[in-house]
Design a protein around this nucleic acid. Structure first.
Length: 206
DNA sequence: TAAACGATCTGCT
DNA sequence: GCAGATCGTTTAT
C-alpha cells in the first residue's frame, strides 16, 4: 500500500484556532480527542490522531507545573492559548497545548496519538518498526514528531509547520475520563481523557 | 553545590 | 510487573 506523506487537504482548511484553545482546560482536553496533531519536518508531515490527553488546571491543581507560579522553565505555559509548552522530564520531552486566556498557566498534555502520517520517518526517529511503539506515550510521541525543548513556545495556531486539525469526515471517538497518569498530587481527579477504543493508549482504561 | 524529584521509557522476568 | 537509566529543575544545606 502506498504511504502518503501529506495530510488530506481537508485538514489544511480545518486548523484549530485560538478560540478553540482559549476555553476551560478540561473542555479543550476532551475535545482534542479525535483531532489530528501534525508537525512538518524536512518536507514531510508527521503525526496522527490524538487519542489521549490530560488537563492541568490553572488554580487548585497541585499536579500542574504552574502550581507554584511562573518560572523561567514553565514561562510558555503562561503564554497565549494555542502556544506549545514543551518541558523536559527523565531525559525526554512532553508537549502541551496552552489553554484559557494568557497568564493563567493552564494547559493540556497530549499523551498519545494514533500514528498516521510519516510512519517511516517516525519509525526512524523512534528506532522501532512496530507502529505500536511509535507514539504510545507523551515522550514517545515527542520523539516520533521530532519535538524537543527547542520547540517550546511555538504557536499551534499561527505556525504553518505545526498545528492541530479536524477532518471533514469527523472521527467519533468514545471518550472516557479517568485518573491522570504518573502524578503524586491530586490523584483522584478525572482529568485524563481517552478514546476507549484506541489501540494506542499509554495505559489501558480500568 | 549537593541532593532529590519527576506529567517517562525500556528491557527483562 | 518491576527495577534501572537518565538529566534538567527545584529544593535543601
Amino acid at each position: 500500500m502506498v504511504q502518503h506523506f501529506s495530510p488530506p487537504k481537508s485538514l489544511h482548511s480545518n486548523r484549530l484556532g485560538a478560540a478553540f484553545y482559549g476555553r476551560p482546560t478540561a473542555v479543550v482536553a476532551k475535545e482534542l480527542i479525535g483531532k489530528a496533531l501534525l508537525h512538518h519536518v524536512d518536507g514531510q508531515w508527521l503525526g496522527g490522531w490524538i487519542v489521549e490527553t490530560e488537563a492541568y488546571l490553572d488554580q487548585g491543581d497541585p499536579a500542574s507545573h504552574s502550581a507554584r507560579g511562573k518560572t523561567a522553565s514553565n514561562a510558555s505555559m503562561f503564554s497565549d492559548p494555542g502556544t506549545l509548552y514543551v518541558y523536559p522530564i527523565h531525559a525526554k520531552h512532553c508537549l502541551n497545548a496552552v489553554t484559557q486566556p494568557a497568564d493563567q498557566g493552564a494547559a493540556v498534555l497530549i499523551r498519545a496519538i494514533e500514528p498516521v502520517w510519516g510512519l517511516d520517518v517516525m519509525r526512524r526517529l523512534r528506532g522501532y518498526d512496530d507502529v505500536r511503539r511509535l507514539t504510545r506515550g507523551p515522550a514517545m510521541l515527542c520523539q516520533a514528531l521530532q519535538i524537543d525543548r527547542g520547540d517550546d513556545g511555538r504557536c499551534l495556531v499561527s505556525d504553518e509547520r505545526i498545528g492541530v486539525f479536524t477532518d471533514s469526515i469527523p472521527r467519533v471517538p468514545v471518550i472516557r475520563a479517568t485518573k491522570r497518569i504518573g502524578i503524586s498530587k491530586a490523584k483522584h481527579r478525572n482529568l485524563r481523557f481517552v478514546d476507549v477504543n484506541s489501540e494506542y493508549l499509554s495505559r489501558k482504561v480500568e
